[in-house]
Amino acid sequence: MTMRLREVADLLGCQVVTGEEHLDRLEVDACFAADLMSDVLAFSRAGALLITGLASLQAAHTADVADLAGVLFVSGKRPAPAVVELACENSIPLLSTTLSMFEACGRLFGAGLGSAVRR
């Protein structure tokens, strides 16, 4: 099961912060949800969608160095301009939903996406 990021954005009623042009191109089959970037760096696999409540510069750097497909900010978190700029430079789409971490994860799991835990 894969979903285009466009479908993810539609399913969760996301605001597209940056990377609109990549949404129809990028597909994900799995997600990794954490506020702890060390967890993401340690345990996620490449190509995953990162779901997080941490809207800091380090979230965008994490998505870059870990080769993630994009970042979904939950609970209405909006990243600062410097974060958006960094993501834009690295072609990493940023989405923002008002749903909680739990509900965003639940909906994506229900839609068939898996867990992007590195074996």
Binding site: L36, S38, D39, V40, L41, A42, Q58, T62
Partner: peptide
């Protein structure tokens, strides 16, 4: 608050 400091850094580098 920055998403670090969980005690995973050095083991993660080694891994």
């Amino acid at each position: 608050q920055r998403g670090f400091g969980a005690g995973l850094g050095l083991p993660n580098i080694k891994r």
